[in-house]
Design a protein around this nucleic acid. Structure first.
Lengths: 127, 127
DNA sequence: CTATTATATAAACAAACACTTATATAAAGA
DNA sequence: TCTTTATATAAGTGTTTGTTTATATAATAG
């Protein structure tokens, strides 16, 4: 093996340069792709899908969500923390209760749109 | 502690029954939520976001993708297998090459829509 | 003040995952 | 046939993640 010979990757030989330029132009950077992937990560768990689906319908406190999902309170709190940390959901205190709601900002709206794209035939008139 | 007393969960006392019915009506089942979450799982990794973004622009072979992303070929093949297994992408053989493309079915279209929702300001005229 | 309710957080653990290295397969070319 | 190229897959590894159990905090009720 003569290492003065560059490894002849297939890419060098057959991507049309103009075509490659088009692909690169639309290709998100690592940071952009990571940000985008993070949004999807928030929705990549069935518990969080259900939580966000519920919160898209109405504000709810933690124990209501735990009750409706038949899940442990810490498990629900855990997921809510994940969604809080990236500002997908927010909360307000009300007596002993903590009422959670979908953020009324860009990320909240994006989540709403994504759920709408993926939910169809579930009879919701709005989201 | 007298265990004949049922735990008085907050949900019993203050959810408006009609309200609860509305929430439950829109709440996906565990299976539905799992299916929905699975779609988002496919997009929850920055490498797969980039792969799908590229494939939304044009069909590509494995080594082109590895080359464009400066990633190892097995790593790219690994992600393509994940996307193949759920029919998000498909492939056709062409000589030594394996050309991958976004599936032209419901899941493929859903992925296209989801990427479109989440990508904005990246200068793509179509997806 | 004391007990109860609602919530958050920490520790622990099993499962899933992304990537690497190494190897196998298959097509093409010499 | 032998070598090279393109791809797939398997094994190994370190990291992340979802859930549970246990505990801490804070608000309300008695």
């Amino acid at each position: 093996m003569n290492d003065s010979v560059p490894t002849p990757l297939c890419g060098e030989s057959h991507i049309d340069p103009q075509h490659e330029e088009q692909i690169r132009a639309r290709l998100p950077s690592e940071d952009e792709a990571a940000d985008i992937a993070a949004v999807f990560t928030h929705l990549s768990d069935s518990t969080r899908v259900k939580l966000l689906s519920m919160l898209a319908t109405s504000d709810l406190c933690v124990c209501e969500m735990a009750d409706l999902l038949s899940m442990s309170q810490p498990a629900v709190s855990h997921h809510l923390r994940i969604l809080r940390q990236c500002d997908v959901v927010r909360f307000r205190k009300s007596g002993q209760r903590t009422m959670y709601y979908l953020s009324d900002n860009e990320i909240g709206n994006t989540i709403r749109q994504l759920l709408q794209v993926v939910m169809s035939g579930k009879g919701q008139t709005d989201v």
